[in-house]
Design a protein around this nucleic acid. Structure first.
Length: 141
RNA sequence: AAGCAAACUGGUUCUAUCGCUGCAUUUGAUAUGGAGAGGAAAGUCCGGGCAACAUAGGGUAAUACGCUUCCUAACGGGAAGGCUAAUUUUAGGAUUAGACAGCAAGUGCCACAGAAAAUAUACCGCCUUUCGGGGUAAGGGUGAAAACGUGAGGUAAGAGCUCACGGAUUUAUAUGGUAACAUAUAUCUCGGUAAACCUCGUAUGUUGAAAGACCAAAUAGGUUGCAAGAUCAGAAAGCGACCCGUUUUCUACCUUCGGGUAAUUGCAAUGGGUAGGUUGAUUGAGUUUGCAUGUGAAUGCAAACCUAGAUAAAUGAUAGAAAUUCUUAUUUUAGAAUACAGAACCCGGCUUACAAGGUUUGCUUCUUU
RNA sequence: GCCUCCGUAGUUCAAUGGAUAGAAUGUUAGAUUCCGGUUCUGAUGAUGUAGGUUCGAUUCCUACCGGAGGUA
C-alpha cells in the first residue's frame, strides 16, 4: 500500500480492466443514482497484491450520445472529476480495510460542465461511504 | 464593387501547473528526456496486402460489372478520348450529365383511352361484288408510344409497290485513327422496354486481426504407461517343509465368438479447454523535396526523414497570452465566435459532413467609362 | 469489428410498375337514446429523405437517415 503522497494520479491499477470482475460487479453489486450519474459498487476485503483500494470504470451510453467525440469528452470529464475528488474515498477505505469496485455511468441527456460534475462526484463519494457503513452495521447485527 | 451558387485550398499558435499512454536512459522505489488523432480517423460502399482452412481439371449455379485506350498491386477507382442527351451561343464552340454491350437470339410486358399496342382475324370509311364475301393501313384525333416522313408515279381503291430527297439501322469494302469512332460507297431493315426475365463477355474458393502464432504457472478433469494396496469371497492347480504368502485359471457383464470391460490412489508422459500475457501491430504499394518522362492519371531516379500505437481502450483539465473574424465602439476598451468530427491490423479509392479566410468560374444587381 | 433484415394513417398489417394508396382498430364530429353502451355516417396519411431508370415508382437502381436482429 503506497499512496497518500500522490493524491491526484489515475493509473492503470486504479481502472477496472478484468472482464471477470466487471461481470461480478454488475451481477452482485448494488446501485443508486446521483443525477446525472448512476453508480454500481461492490465492496470486498482488501487484496494485499493491489496498491490501490478502488478500481473504477466509466461509461457513457451510445443511445444518448451518438457521436464518439461527445462520449469521449464526457468520459474524460468524469475521470478528471473522480481524479480530483477520490482522496476522501481512499482514506475512508483504508480505515475500513476494504477494496471497492466501482462503475460510474452517465445518465443525463445534456452535457454538464466540469465544475458541476465535481460537485456531483463529491456528493456521490459521500453517499458511497454512507452505504458501506450501513451494510457493515447490518453484517455486525 | 456587392450578393448567390459551384469547384479547389484551408483546418489557429505559445507558456505554466496537475494528470494519462508508449519510447529512450537510469534505478531499490522511481526520476529525467522526448513523442502522442484526421482530411475526412466517419459511412463500411468497392479493391488489395496479411493470416487460417480448403483446393487435380472442367462445367453449372449465384453475385457484381459492361463505349475505347491507358494508369494501377488491384478495383465497381482515376486520366485522356469517342458517342448520346440537356443547357447556352448568330455560328464556331463551351459547360454539365450519362449502368453508354445486346430487343437484327428467345420469352414476357405495354394500365386507361383507342378500330388497332405488334402474326394488324379491319369497327367506321374507300374500292369491288355472284350480296356469302374479297381487296385496302390514304382519313379517324385516342395515347407516353400508331406500323419510317414529304412529294411524285402507280392503282378499281390503295400500299416503300416504284422513284427522288431526308431520318434511323444491319452487314461489307475503302480512307483516317492504337482503338471506340468518323467520312464515303454498296446492301439489308424500319414500335418501345434488358435499372423485365435473359443472352454474350469479364471477374470472384471460404472466412476475417474477436483471423492466426507463441508462453510459464496454478486448479480441475481426459487419455496412455508403471506401481500400490483394497473390494475379495470361494474353488482348483503350481512354487517354497508348513501356517501363511505369492502366481495362474475359473466364477461377473457385453459380444460380430475373434475378443473386450471392471471401482480407488500415487508418479510420469501427452494433447486439449478456461482466464491472463507476448506477438500479429506499425519501416510502409511510407512521407517530404528536387530532377526527368508523359496531354494526363501516373511512373522512374536521387537526397533527406522515422512521424500515435491504445486494448472496458491514452491523446485531457485549469489558468494566462497571442492570431483571425464579428458586434459594441471608433485613441481605445469590452464581449462573442474559431467548423466537421476522435485512430482500433494496414494500405488504394469512392461517398457523406465541414466555421472564418483565400483562389478560380458562372449568374444577378449597382456604379463608372 | 463483421454480417443480415426492415422503414406505408396515432397503432397493427395489405397492395403484380397503372395513382383516387386500402383493411382493422384508435381519435374526433354528427345521428340514434331520457342518459350511457352498441349501431350507423363522415373526417383524419409529404409511402423514412434525396436523386435516377420509366409514359408512369410504395414497388426497380444508387446514396444518405433511422431502427431491429445475429456473431463473439
Amino acid at each position: 500500500m503506497v499512496i497518500a503522497m500522490k493524491k491526484y494520479t489515475f493509473k492503470k491499477e486504479e481502472r477496472l480492466c478484468s472482464k471477470r470482475s466487471i461481470d461480478d460487479l454488475f451481477h452482485n453489486g448494488s446501485s443508486f443514482v446521483v443525477y446525472p450519474l448512476r453508480v454500481v459498487f461492490l465492496s470486498r476485503p482488501t487484496d494485499p497484491e493491489q496498491n490501490f483500494p478502488a478500481q473504477v470504470i466509466t461509461s457513457v451510453p451510445k443511445k444518448r450520445f451518438k457521436k464518439a467525440v461527445d462520449r469521449n469528452y464526457l468520459k474524460r470529464l468524469m475521470r478528471e472529476s473522480y481524479r480530483l475528488e477520490k482522496d476522501k474515498l481512499y482514506s475512508f477505505l483504508q480505515d475500513h480495510s476494504l477494496n471497492l469496485l466501482l462503475a460510474i455511468q452517465y445518465v443525463s441527456n445534456d452535457k454538464l460542465p466540469l465544475e458541476a460534475l465535481k460537485g456531483k462526484m463529491e456528493q456521490l463519494i459521500g453517499r458511497i461511504e454512507n452505504e458501506i457503513t450501513k451494510s457493515d452495521l447490518g453484517k455486525g447485527n
